[in-house]
Write a protein that binds this DNA or RNA. Structure first.
Ligand SMILES: Nc1ccn([C@H]2C[C@H](O)[C@@H](COP(=O)(O)OP(=O)(O)OP(=O)(O)O)O2)c(=O)n1
Ligand SMILES: [Mg+2]
Length: 1099
DNA sequence: ATCCTCCCCTAC
DNA sequence: TAAGGTAGGGGAGGAT
């Protein structure tokens, strides 16, 4: 009862809170966002900056200008909202005001006041950079801490200023938590006493120079007993950011020195033997990703256990189904994986929330630790509570002020200085020199997380693991039973349940969680933001409108910077309230169909997304874009093979093999400095991806590190990059198949022998077909499994028609064992059909009469059945969207290669085996088989990948976090003179070009290859006379090669250009090369004309 | 129309 | 010194 009241109170308090903006924003945004005149200074002070800062700096003109326009626009929007004619005065000009919680006058009224008198209403708090003042009537203790260093003022300031017709000093209206109007009382939370500050110039102009000593250590000042709660101007974010950086000097002297030392590099970069292990042991993002996968897997297991309990009688009839095991147990014992943990879902399946009966009111909770890493660290460092604490690698002892170490998590005190997750320590120190750093403690995070999840699982109908510190929980049933257990005792059962959970987690882990509650996932997440820190918030339907209206769309989960900019660009606003006026069509046009619709609904508080607790994995990858520095190809090859081992290990940990490999390469952008500004970082890079079918020597899906390594290395070689320029490598395996699904059953072998592999090993490999059975067993969820055992055989027709089996064919026992909701859905469907005989339900075709067209499916009927039951268009099944397997089936609707069984037999391909393959593997095999049958004639299509780049209309900006593997923006600066090109350093021009062309003959170029190759030659020609010579030499040799390989096309369609498309035949490749050659020659000719007054002679 | 690939984007 | 990983949703546009 008590906690219930508590909860209600909290809600009351929190319901006044405004949503805060998204957490992570580009660190570099802050200064520029404010368009401070000091930004150049800032840049200079910063000395060697990290990438984002560099970007900000080198593109400053463009970006800064953009931000100014943006700000102007924002103000215009703000004012025009109220109608320009309403503008009454300018007294609030320069103010950006955030209104916290419930106020009197109301938020709406205050907003109007602000806007009509020239100020800016800021709906988000952590666009702190923009907020000059906070208006409030009440604060929670947590907020008090949060706002400690900001100007917090009572609403009267605005009202009375307007009345007075001039801006009154804000310091006369400072808000004091304990006391009411007057500025003298003490207050609850052990805050300092409150004394009006001396300085009374209200809005700090951006130029205000900071008094260094005053702003240096706000934290220590906050300890002083006779100090105002809210300090004077200088220590707010915007001023703090201008605090001159002290030890700002040249980057990290130490770091620089050390980087120059070859010995050190040998020991600490990618060429070190244990580099990968060491890197992963310390990478927070790696841990985050691994934990997420493990948690999902653990949750899935828990659910399956729960379901098995509920249907115990039917399980294991046909032997166990291979399940993805959680926690990569095979890794060493000292690791920090979740291995060994087991969760128990609160209740068996019937509560899983899919029953139509109680479907009306779902209740979702979004639970998230407050500043997780910091909270975890503070559990054993209580003396640091109340200090601005951050977690990062650098412990900032010496050189910390110039550290590029990234902050994983910042505590709330630190945030009040403007420090954010993802910032570099250097930036943080600028904002708050007294910041305290604590190290990572991955084991602890794991332990706390597993306690957290254990608690959540007890209350969950269903649960989606979002992250190590965050989960989405369906608690509909739990709330309902609370209500049933004690009717009318509480007015908000969800809130009371949340309070229970919150307190339990706090008691168990010692850390605060915040919980947002709402009827759907999107809203629950928004509620969480309002709940933070250390609070609860139930966002009710009635308040949704109000809560959403002030947000920008990037405050919604799933919408980020890019979407926001697109919206602004194409719709004129990114504000949710404004966008609510746009039609669905407009949104779709601007953002794409799916995104537009999602947004349209999200804006209205609608979100149909289901919890995703049981999706099987579809890819496994391993990326390292840190510390990658090679001197030669041998080192590179070694590293690739090591990475291959890593991926292979991860695959075997979860018992999958793969059929497709993508290599992801980052190469230093020629215009970027050799050494990245971030210590051992990748710097500005160009990226190159290439995909290849992956197979063992037998043509099977594989997880063998040797297979993977070979494929990856071959791809990397095909790029012909200077190894010294590589800055990142990734290997991703797709088209996964579950391992171990019986190497047992007899299968026909293709007649091809290994001898075939002689010339083109890869293709020949493809032709080899599995000696094992088809192995596409996509972790069938239990229902599917049961269906499978129902021994249902649906017909397959030429134009495959899919349907659920006729009712009589369904094994009753199995049917009865189905979960209630599924049974219900099936029943409905059967009922519906019996009532509408007009429905075209083709009778099942007997198995022996199966048509000659092979339809891809799995080796079992699982896929077919799931597909049949999955939501699909008009033809057969109900128009109503079946929710049955919507979330379970990942790969809906297998497609098929149409081929007569006869031909397959002729080609020596077992139709059954063939049918089990993914469609593009089918294609490959077919092509190769036909090719070989025809005696190796040319003209076989080859899979290529390339998608045209979309042009970006909105300004470029680095992604918010430096941890993004690539800054997709800002690659546009052309090469500079003096940039070394690989091939200018290679005397053997012929060899290079030859390797290139040869390579692409085997492995056709994609658009990027051609562009790159061309750019190469042109750049070289531009760079110097010697470069020109080399280009000419190269082109001569190129010409020779082209004539040798594709002579026929030299004069073919001279006016046509052959685009590089997804599927290239030999002919197209040849023509594309000639096209490229002609284009390069044109360009080089132009250069030569300018420089030498003549064109090339390639004779 | 539907699938598939590549790429971009987002999240922690 | 620092440890910028990783998986999935979705759009564009070619292939079927
Ligand atoms: N750029 C980032 C963002 C997050 N994390 C890690 C550290 C965080 O503690 C944890 C959880 O991320 P949250 O987004 O939930 O951030 P916090 O928990 O730190 O803060 P809060 O949830 O209170 O906003 O993930 C990280 O390493 N790097
Ligand atoms: Mg958190």
């Amino acid at each position: 009862m008590e906690h219930t009241n508590n909860a209600s109170n909290k809600q009351l308090i929190n319901s006044e809170a405004k949503a805060k903006a998204k957490r992570s924003r580009s660190p570099s945004e802050s200064p520029e966002d404010r368009g401070q005149p000091s930004k150049t200074t800032l840049h200079r002070l910063n000395g060697l900056e990290n990438d984002t800062e560099i970007y900000g700096a080198s593109h400053f003109g463009e970006w800064g200008e953009y931000m100014q326009r943006k700000r102007a626009k924002l103000q215009i929007q703000n004012t025009s909202l109220e109608g320009p004619s309403d503008a009454k005065s300018d007294i609030f000009r320069g103010l950006a005001i955030y209104i916290n919680g419930w106020t009197r006058p109301s938020v709406q009224e205050l907003r109007k006041l602000i806007v009509t008198h020239g100020g800016v209403f800021q709906p988000y708090l952590d666009k702190k950079s923009l907020v000059t003042h906070i208006i409030t009537c009440s604060l929670t203790p947590a907020k008090i801490r949060e706002f400690k260093h900001m100007k917090v003022v009572r609403p009267e300031w605005l009202v009375e200023s307007v009345d007075a017709g001039t801006l009154l000093p804000w310091t006369d209206y400072i808000f004091y938590p304990g006391g009411r109007a007057e500025a003298s009382q003490g207050h609850p939370v052990g805050q300092t006493t409150l004394k009006p500050v001396s300085k009374s110039t209200p809005p700090p102009s951006p130029q205000v120079q900071v008094n260094r000593s005053e702003s240096q250590s706000p934290a220590s000042r906050s300890r002083s007993p006779s100090r105002p709660l809210y300090t004077t101007d200088p220590s707010t974010y915007e001023d703090a950011v201008r605090v001159p950086g002290y030890a700002m000097g040249q980057s990290n002297e130490m770091a620089e020195r050390v980087m120059a030392d070859p010995q050190w590099r040998a020991a600490h970069t990618s060429i070190a033997p244990d580099f990968i292990e060491g890197f992963y042991k310390n990478s927070r993002l790696h841990h985050l990703s691994m934990w997420k996968a493990e948690l999902r897997s653990l949750v899935m297991e828990a659910q399956e256990r729960a379901e098995r309990e509920a249907f115990g009688n039917t399980q294991d009839r046909d032997g166990p189904v291979v399940q993805e095991k959680a926690g990569a147990q095979s890794t060493s014992t000292t690791d920090v994986s979740m291995g060994g943990v087991e969760f128990t879902l609160r209740s068996p399946t019937k509560n899983k929330g899919k029953c139509k009966a109680e479907t009306n009111e779902r209740v979702f909770m979004h639970c998230d630790f407050d500043c997780f890493f910091v909270s975890a660290g503070l559990t054993t460092r209580p003396h640091l509570r109340g200090k601005p604490v951050v977690v990062c690698h650098s412990q900032g002892n010496q050189g910390g002020a110039s550290s590029t170490s990234e902050i994983a998590s910042s505590g709330y005190e630190a945030r009040s200085f403007g420090i954010k997750n993802g910032m570099s320590l250097r930036q943080a120190k600028q904002l708050c020199p007294s910041v305290v750093t604590i190290p990572y403690e991955f084991e602890r995070y794991r332990d706390l997380s597993s306690q957290f999840y254990t608690i959540l699982m007890r209350y969950a109908d269903d649960l989606e693991a979002v992250s190590v510190d965050e989960a989405l929980v369906d608690v509909s049933h739990g709330v309902a039973s609370r209500r049933a257990a004690a009717p009318f005792s509480v007015n908000d059962y969800a809130l009371s349940l949340a309070e229970t959970i919150r307190e339990e987690v706090k008691a168990t882990t010692g850390c605060d969680v915040s919980i947002g509650i709402a009827e759907n996932i999107q809203l629950a997440r928004i509620a969480t933001r309002m709940a933070k820190p250390a609070g609860l918030f139930h966002l009710r339907r009635d308040d949704v409108q109000k809560a959403l209206e002030p947000l920008d769309i990037d405050d919604l989960h799933g919408f980020g910077y890019s979407t926001r900019e697109k919206a602004k660009e194409k719709l004129g606003t990114a504000n949710v309230g404004e966008l609510a006026k746009k039609s669905k069509g407009q949104l779709c046009e601007a953002l794409g169909k799916g995104t537009g619709e999602t947004l349209y609904k999200a804006i209205r508080g609608i979100d149909d997304r289901k919890l995703e607790s049981d999706k099987p994995r579809r890819s496994v990858s391993c990326d390292i874009n840190y510390g990658v520095r090679f001197e030669n190809n041998e080192q590179t090859e070694t590293f690739i093979y090591r990475m291959a081992e890593e991926v292979a290990r991860r695959m075997s940990d979860i018992s999958v093999r793969g059929r497709s490999l993508t290599l992801k390469i980052m190469k230093r952008d020629p215009s970027a400095p050799k050494e990245a500004p971030k210590f051992l970082g990748h710097g500005i890079c160009e990226t190159f991806n290439k995909q290849t079918p992956l197979s063992s020597i037998h043509g099977q899906a594989t997880n063998d590190s040797k297979d993977i390594g070979e494929h990856a290395w071959k791809l990397l070689k095909s790029f012909n990059f200077d190894p010294r320029e590589l800055r990142g490598v990734g290997i991703q395996i797709q088209k996964l198949e579950k391992e171990g699904m019986a190497e047992n059953s007899a299968q026909a072998r293709l007649p091809f022998q290994p001898a075939f592999r002689a010339k083109t090993p890869d293709k020949a490999e493809l032709v080899q077909v599995a000696s094992g059975p088809p192995q596409i067993v996509v972790q069938p969820p239990s229902q599917e499994e049961i269906l499978q055992r129902a021994d249902v055989t649906a017909g397959v027709e030429e134009a495959p028609t899919h349907d659920i089996p006729s009712f009589s064919q369904v094994d009753k026992e199995v049917f009865d064992a189905l979960p209630e909701d599924i049974r219900e859905e099936l029943e409905n469907e059967y009922k519906r059909r019996s009532k509408s005989p007009t429905l075209n339900v083709p009778p099942p075709v007997p198995a022996e009469r199966r048509p000659r067209i092979v339809v891809k499916g799995t080796s079992t009927d699982v896929k077919r059945i799931t597909r049949q039951l999955a939501p699909r268009s008009k033809t057969t099944i109900s128009p109503r969207k079946s929710t049955l397997f919507a979330k379970r089936v990942t790969r809906v609707g297998p497609s098929s290669v149409r081929v007569a069984e006869d031909e397959l037999q002729e080609l020596g391909i077992d139709p059954e085996v063939f049918a089990a393959l993914p469609v593009d593997v089918q294609r490959e095999q077919l092509i190769t088989a036909r090719h070989l049958k025809n005696g190796g004639a040319l003209a076989e299509p080859k899979v290529l990948k390339y998608a045209k780049r979309k042009t970006r209309v909105y300004p470029k900006k680095p992604p918010p976090l430096a941890s993004h593997p690539q800054h997709p923006f800002l690659k546009q600066q052309g090469p500079k003179k003096g940039d070394k090109l690989y091939f200018t350093r290679t005397d053997d021009v012929q060899r290079v070009i030859e390797a290139w062309v040869e390579n692409f003959k085997e492995d056709p170029p994609n658009q990027k290859d051609v562009e790159y190759f061309s750019k190469f030659l042109v750049q070289s020609a531009e760079s110097s006379d010697t470069g020109m010579e080399k280009t000419v030499a190269a082109m001569r040799w190129w010409l020779v090669l082209l004539r040798r390989h594709w002579e026929f096309y030299e004069h073919h369609d001279l006016l046509e250009t052959e685009p590089v498309t997804q599927r290239m035949t030999s002919e197209k490749i040849g023509r594309a090369w000639w096209t490229a050659f002609r284009e390069v020659k044109l360009k080089v000719d132009a250069i030569a004309t300018k420089r030498f007054g003549g064109t090339l002679c390639l004779k």
